[in-house]
Amino acid sequence: MTPHISAQPGDIAETVLLPGDPRRAKWAAETFLDSPRLVNEVRGMFGFTGTWKGNEVTIHGTGMGMPSLSIYVNELIREYGARTLIRIGSAGAMQPQVKVRDVVLAMTSTTLSTPSRGILRELNYAPCADYGLLAAAHAAAAAKGVGTHVGGIYSSDVFYDERPDLNEQMQRHGILAVEMETAELYTLAARHDARALSVLTISDHLLTEEALPPEDRERSFGDMVEIALEAAFA
């Protein structure tokens, strides 16, 4: 047990899917896993372990933002032996060719700062995805016929951003989408020799202000979960 995860030894699989929303963890586990069982609910952050095509999988919430994700990923890797960690979350598109409902596979993640900045200090570390997971996810997305983009994203420290000048520069430099967790996930995975990937569904668009209707979110997020599972066990 850890301060934030009450799971017992053996309750957490080596492969962990990481939605930000704990209720999405519950929905994904009940929808895609066989015999899911609740293994954590400390502070309302649900974690479930079950099987997918005979492979053991844990789906565990991380909360919003890099500091929250950092707590759970550190504990999952260091105390429970997680080796493959795939974020399944939403993102806002920053390029015209990226459409609502599309999937973005984050090759790299740009950020102003992360919880790891205290360790890295003056180093501008460039966190990136595990290539094997990235390639497998791209193949799975192509097989499903899902609109998919691979490239750099931006992990923001804040949800209510007031830096239009910064957004303009990221758009100019090809950043595909913005979310709040991936840079720290990739940094921690590198530090602990684990594999990591972010598979992101575009739920809204910063340029067009289009947003995914609530009734369509579950179906679109389902594609993302299936892509992540296929990639994990390719």
Rank of each mutant, 00 (worst) to 15 (best):
G151C: 07
S90F: 09
R195P: 00
N74W: 08
R121I: 11
A129L: 07
P36Y: 04
T108W: 08
A177P: 02
A135E: 15
T62R: 08
A82Q: 05
I227L: 10
Q169N: 09
V146N: 05
G174E: 04
V104F: 09
G89L: 03
E181V: 00
G174P: 04
A196R: 03
I12R: 09
P22C: 06
H149C: 05
L69T: 05
S109V: 01
C128A: 15
A232M: 07
V150E: 12
L112G: 14
A140F: 03
F159P: 06
G81V: 02
M180Y: 02
V73H: 05
D193W: 04
R117G: 13
A140S: 15
V199P: 05
A93I: 01
G132L: 01
V39T: 14
L17R: 07
M64L: 13
E226Y: 05
E162C: 07
A7P: 09
L17H: 02
N74L: 06
A28Y: 12
M107L: 15
T187F: 00
R219K: 15
G152T: 14
R37M: 09
T110V: 13
S156P: 07
K144R: 15
E41H: 13
L212P: 10
S155E: 09
T187Y: 03
L229S: 02
A106V: 03
R43W: 11
N40P: 08
V225Y: 10
A7G: 08
S198T: 04
R24C: 00
M45A: 09
E230L: 10
Y125R: 12
A143I: 06
G54Y: 08
G47L: 00
G89M: 04
D157N: 15
N167S: 13
R78F: 01
L206R: 13
L123A: 15
T49A: 08
A28S: 13
I5S: 08
H205W: 03
W27Q: 11
R101L: 00
A211Q: 14
G147D: 09
L212F: 12
E181M: 04
E179R: 00
E218D: 14
G152C: 13
A183S: 14
E75V: 10
H192A: 01
A183K: 07
M1T: 14
T49F: 09
R163P: 00
D193R: 13
A29N: 07
N55Y: 09
M64Q: 11
R83H: 11
W27F: 13
L123W: 14
G65M: 05
H205L: 00
S155V: 10
N40V: 07
Q95V: 00
S90L: 11
L105M: 02
C128I: 11
P36F: 03
S90A: 14
D21A: 07
A141Q: 08
V158H: 10
E30P: 05
G61W: 10
A7M: 11
D21Q: 01
R23N: 15
T84H: 06
L76T: 04
N167V: 09
G65D: 05
Y125M: 11
G222H: 11
R121V: 11
A211F: 11
Q169C: 06
Q97F: 12
G174R: 01
E14R: 13
H192V: 03
H205T: 03
K144Y: 14
Y186L: 12
A28C: 07
M45V: 12
L185F: 09
A136S: 15
R219V: 14
P164W: 02
Y160R: 01
L134R: 02
T148I: 03
R163W: 07
